Structure formats: C-alpha cells, structure tokens
Amino acid sequence: MRITKRWRVRRLSADGGTRDRADVLAGEEPLEIRVGGRSYAVTMRTPGHDVELVAGFLVSEGVLAAADDVLLMDDRAGVTATGERDRNVVDVRLAPGVAPPDASRHRHVYTTSSCGVCGTASIDAVRTVSRFDVASDDVAVPLRTLLGLPARLRAEQEVFGRTGGVHAAALLSIPAQGGPHDDDGALLCVREDVGRHNAVDKVVGWAVLGGRLPLRRTVLQVSGRASFELVQKAAMAGIPVLSAVSAPSALAVELGEELGVTVVGFNRGDALNVYSRVERVVP
C-alpha cells in the first residue's frame, strides 16, 4: 500500500526532444468495506486514512451519524490468499441498537474512484435522508473567506504537488457573528484522494470519529465540480456550505435548494457563483 509510486517515463516534446526520467504517480487500490463481517461495497481509493474513508462513506449512506454508532473499526480484518494481513479491507462493527444498512443499499458492483452512487441497488436508495437540519444553519460566510479557500486548499495538497493526480477536500469552520474569531476561519481538516468523493468521505470520517457531527457553521471546499453526490454528502454531515472550483450540475443545485445547502461554483479566487441559499454569503 503506497500513497505514491515512482515510475520511469519517456517525455516527448513537440520540438523533437526526448528525455527519460522518473515520475511520481498517485496510488490507487481497491478497498473492501464490510459491515458486521458482510461485504458492503468495494471502492477504488488512494491508500491512507482508510478508517476515516469508511466512516465518512457510511455517514453518506445514512448508516452512521455519531462516533458512538461504531463499536469497532477493524482495518486488520482481511487475509490474503497467502495468509498475510490484507490492508485493503476494513470491517465495521456497529454499536448495539444501531440498525445495519438496508440490503437494498448494498453495492452490487465496485465503486470507481470517480463514482459516488455507482452500484446502488435502486433509484430510491440514491437519495438518503439526513438526520441533521442543514436548512436552519444561520452561518454567514464573508465573500473574502470563500474566495481565499481554493488557494488555502491548494497550499495543503502535498500529494497533488508531487503527482498532479489527486483531488482534495477541506473543511473550514466559520465563527459566530459578534464573537472572538479568525476572520478567515479555521481550516480543520484537509484530505486528498484520486476520487473526489473519497476525499470528502475522509474529511467527514475525520469529523464523525472525532464526535464533531453535525458540522454546523462549516464550509466544505472541493477541488473539482459540485455534483449531486457531494451536495448529498454535505447534507448528511450537517455541512451548510459547499464550494467548488468548477461547475455544479443542475441536480446538485436543485438538491441544494431543497435541502438548504448553499452551493458555490466556479470559485477561482477572484469571483464565484452562488446557486442556492445566497443569503449565507456576505459581500
């Protein structure tokens, strides 16, 4: 299991130049998620923060909402054909009284690093219901703070700096109006992964395992576009604001309007678009 891997490449240029050199690639390996010993899903991810990834994934699936919902997260559950420990398996044991995931939500095909809802067994299962009232969050985010987030995220992207091949997600806390605070907010957590959904799951997993849900008065900044799945993941974790450097989809904006999530797109540091719950962004 490696976050990055070195590989020999031949670089060719338009002027006829040729040069052999070493390149650094982002790691990508399968991870099997088990709940109570039963296989639930297999996703492709960049190794690292696997327990957080699984916890965040199960929050987005509606299985977990608090650290107390988990009795044990075993990243030593898998065994290879040669009898060695398989680092690509995490088994989750739910606490007594926590309902196991419905069979209709089990993923029947593996989830690629670019897919959020691939393999979901039914259309109804795509839309999960959050336990948190995101619409009631009265957070007010200064425009300057939002515009500064892409640069703050990029500065923390160590693996991207080495490979150019991973996405990232960051969680920012916004102080209450009138109280002591940092005008730019506190950067709580940054995670990277070849899958943008995985990067978000790792951030949410960090939060749920630390007993921080719901994530009221926070902003989730992502390095890619704002999809339906990312708006849903934000709502499931109680995050009121989702900001992306690229475009949102129509369904993402409609879901944000429905659930009360502020959806921000094309945040490039000098301007941005606010598509839903615009009153939360303070010029």
Rank of each mutant, 00 (worst) to 15 (best):
S130H: 05
S130G: 12
S130Q: 06
S130N: 03
R131M: 07
R131V: 06
F132Y: 12
F132S: 10
F132D: 09
D133M: 01
V134S: 03
S136A: 15
D138Y: 00
V139A: 13
V139M: 07
V139H: 05
V139R: 08
V139L: 09
V139E: 12
V139Q: 11
A140F: 00
A140E: 08
A140P: 00
V141T: 08
V141M: 10
V141N: 06
P142T: 06
P142E: 10
L143P: 08
R144G: 15
T145Y: 00
T145P: 04
L146W: 00
L146C: 09
L146D: 06
L147W: 04
L147V: 04
G148I: 11
L149C: 13
L149E: 11
P150L: 11
P150H: 07
P150E: 11
A151I: 03
A151P: 05
A151W: 04
A151C: 04
R152A: 13
R152V: 11
L153F: 08
L153I: 09
L153S: 05
A155F: 01
A155M: 06
E156S: 14
Q157M: 15
Q157E: 14
Q157D: 03
V159Q: 09
V159H: 11
V159T: 15
F160K: 08
G161P: 01
G161D: 05
G161S: 02
R162M: 14
R162I: 04
R162K: 15
R162H: 13
T163G: 08
T163Y: 05
G164R: 05
G164I: 04
G165A: 13
G165S: 12
G165D: 10
G165N: 04
V166K: 06
A168H: 02
A168R: 01
A169V: 07
A169R: 10
A170W: 01
A170N: 05
A170F: 05
L171S: 02
L172D: 03
L172Q: 12
L172G: 03
L172I: 14
S173N: 01
S173E: 14
I174L: 12
P175K: 00
A176H: 12
Q177A: 14
G178E: 11
G179D: 11
H181M: 07
D182R: 14
D182K: 08
D182C: 03
D183H: 06
D183G: 15
D184S: 13
G185C: 10
G185V: 10
G185R: 03
L187H: 05
L187K: 04
L188V: 14
L188W: 01
L188A: 09
V190T: 15
V190Y: 09
V190G: 08
R191A: 10
E192T: 05
E192P: 13
D193V: 11
V194E: 07
V194M: 10
V194D: 07
V194N: 13
G195M: 10
R196E: 15
H197L: 12
H197M: 14
N198H: 09
A199C: 08
